[in-house]
Write a protein that binds this DNA or RNA. Structure first.
Lengths: 233, 233
DNA sequence: CAAATATAATAGTATTACTATTAATTTAAT
DNA sequence: ATTAAATTAATAGTAATACTATTATATTTG
């Protein structure tokens, strides 16, 4: 993906001033990703960030209304990037089953290299998504923020992969449930593997998580006379 | 379950003084459940709680070190209660498949009545689990808190249902992944249904969520010659 | 009944999450 | 090129939060 001239577009209501438009703005994004990773979202403050980038608190506030909005910016960036990756990977593939497999592989993957087509470190951002992204929507403002389109890019990804599922099996009743279960589930499993291993069956290097979710999905949506079909019981 | 003389035992490292041991302590638990529900965990403070129960901040601090520990107390109570419910419901059942179904029904249910065997409102507590419980473990202290046994009761529940899965199919490779996926997934789906409906396929009164996860599990673990078996590919 | 102990309330502090004000710099118009 | 307008940066301040330390008031116990 090196030097491909693609830009991730972010909903402008998420920032006061576009961080991509200035050196300071890019610095804010860059450093905040590092800091949220190393100290966790709760301990991260704009004051500490200002200090770390040789600027100050109030300058950060000119870009983002608060750290919550900055987190949502990052989450949106991640899902736009993921959507772009899925489109690219499945572009010339006609087999719906193959598109589903490829999508799950990307969604459940442990991101290990920075695609390098932007100033954003995707390895660290993926860790933030796993560790912190639930905080972006588990709060009392969810409904008003949802109305403002703060979660649109995540919904897009779920919709895109759900469409592959329906392409494979147009009768399947729960495509969105299935895909959102896979995405959140895969993130949880990576978190559990690192911190609460008895909640998972992760084994290093065996690609368990991806394999588990691919099989889970294919078993759930298969067409054949299914003794446990998802029809009304 | 009325007036059954069962008590939920809570890890004593979670409190400074046992809230069950005094009127004030029970009041703290009771009211905090109400308040976390109505205002959300972030806006909830010990100062507001003290005021609401006609006491003050510092009295609450004598029971709990901080609001995070109180949340973990509640989460532990919930999972002990759920474990107890699962044991009770599956007690005289020999069929492993039936035990799995019953367990998922309880884990994925929208709790609609208070069992009334304690001063804790389980309807509201279930809502807290759905909305706030991820905050109990998505933080930088997870590893030290895990060592202190803060998440033991949740692990117990996952282990118990995983054992049913293994009883049904001893060959199944990922029982913990499957059950933790179902538990977290079902909670997410209830949250999505209320706030981000395009991520789900929930329809009121159709029991979709429970049905979806029961079928997901039964399809994943079934014994027959399975074209998408979970074996190493 | 006095001493020890437990409980409750008051007051105080460092930090956080902002906001308002002022200073400096850049840009743009004549 | 010079001045005005606009943008950006830095300083200082505030209300609220999450505690802690101290003191007052009960309760228990020897």
């Amino acid at each position: 993906m090196k030097s491909l001239n693609v830009r991730i577009h972010i909903n402008p209501t998420l920032y006061s001033k576009d961080p991509e438009s200035s050196e300071l703005g890019r610095h804010i994004i860059c450093k905040s990703i590092e800091m949220i990773n190393s100290m966790g979202f709760e301990a991260f403050t704009f004051k500490k960030l200002g200090l770390a980038i040789g600027s100050n608190e109030s300058s950060v506030y000119r870009y983002f209304a608060n750290k919550h909005t900055l987190l949502i910016y990052l989450v949106n960036w991640y899902w736009s990037w993921m959507d772009y990756k899925i489109v690219l990977q499945t572009a010339n593939i006609n087999d719906a089953k193959e598109k589903i497999k490829l999508s799950i592989e990307m969604l459940a993957a442990d991101i290990k290299q920075d695609s390098d087509f932007s100033f954003i470190n995707e390895i660290l951002l993926n860790k933030i998504i796993i560790m912190e992204s639930s905080k972006a929507y588990h709060n009392k403002d969810i409904d008003s923020e949802n109305e403002k389109g703060f979660f649109k890019t995540y919904k897009h990804v779920v919709q895109r992969v759900s469409d592959f599922v329906l392409e494979y099996n147009p009768e399947f009743e729960f495509p969105h449930m299935l895909i959102s279960t896979v995405i959140e589930g895969a993130h949880n499993q990576r978190f559990f593997a690192a911190h609460l291993p008895s909640l998972t069956d992760f084994k290093e290097g065996k690609n368990n998580i991806t394999r588990f979710y691919i099989n889970l999905v294919l078993n759930a949506i298969k067409l054949s006379n299914n003794p446990h079909s998802f029809k009304n019981s």
